[in-house]
Design a protein around this nucleic acid. Structure first.
Lengths: 122, 122
DNA sequence: GGATTATATAAGCTATTTCTTATATAAAAT
DNA sequence: ATTTTATATAAGAAATAGCTTATATAATCC
């Protein structure tokens, strides 16, 4: 879960890819259209599109010799679904954080400022 | 706007920082607590916290010799506000994309598949 | 079939990020 | 005062990411 989310956030955290995502929110575009619109090299666009596709952010549709890309999922409305799920999930049920949660519950608070043993963990 | 958003997404797109953010959603924690909970070195934690703080994702509160960090903003509910704003914003009003929008409207569609001049841009 | 167009991929370089180790600062405890 | 505790910062190494140039693939056009 963290791995997938990290991939999505990394893919979005780059200025050219952020621009691509916003442009695709207007309409589906092919590589050569993005090339003309962004004014950057074709390999650079293809490479960024690959990152976005591998993150599940865009879909590809082939038509003749063209590849058209469009936004996938809930991105259009501004929600990054995987992040929302991650933050809303019950931490006690997240395998990737089980070690950390156990340590959090057993913090030796003689050394810390608060009474951890009494704090309510969800 | 893109710059600020990029900073936030880059800050979140890293596994240790994603864990920190989730742990801070449980409660405020100081550096030494995070050190004990995550089981990684103190400088590494301080460095990640600096990235999160510079992105406006966490707040710092000093108490005695401790620094307590807590989640800022709407992150708790899973919304990345700056991304939501970015995606919902009217592209025609975004200075960072004015060049691209102009090119998009003037795409030479003899070369492309669709009738761009007639397409409705928001 | 050969040329052109659209896209993808690979290789090498540069820039950025992350981690470790060491050191600095500053408050607290003795 | 000196030592201990908590945190921050700096420097260097290692890993990762992004860009350019060149080449590959594959469909279309003549």
């Amino acid at each position: 879960m963290i791995q997938q989310l990290e991939t999505v956030l990394k893919a979005l955290g780059e200025p050219t890819r952020l621009k691509i995502v916003k442009l695709l929110s207007v309409r589906e575009l092919c590589v050569c259209e993005l090339e003309a619109v962004l004014g950057i090299s074709q390999p650079r666009i293809s490479q960024h599109l690959r990152v976005l596709k591998e993150a599940g952010i865009v879909n590809e549709r082939k038509e003749r010799q063209r590849s058209f890309y469009s936004l996938a999922g809930t991105l259009k409305t501004g929600e990054i679904a995987s992040f929302a799920e991650y933050m809303r999930a019950e931490i006690a049920h997240m395998p990737e954080l089980s070690t950390e949660v156990a340590r959090l519950q057993n913090l030796d608070c003689n050394e810390a400022v608060r009474k951890c043993k009494n704090s309510s963990l969800p």
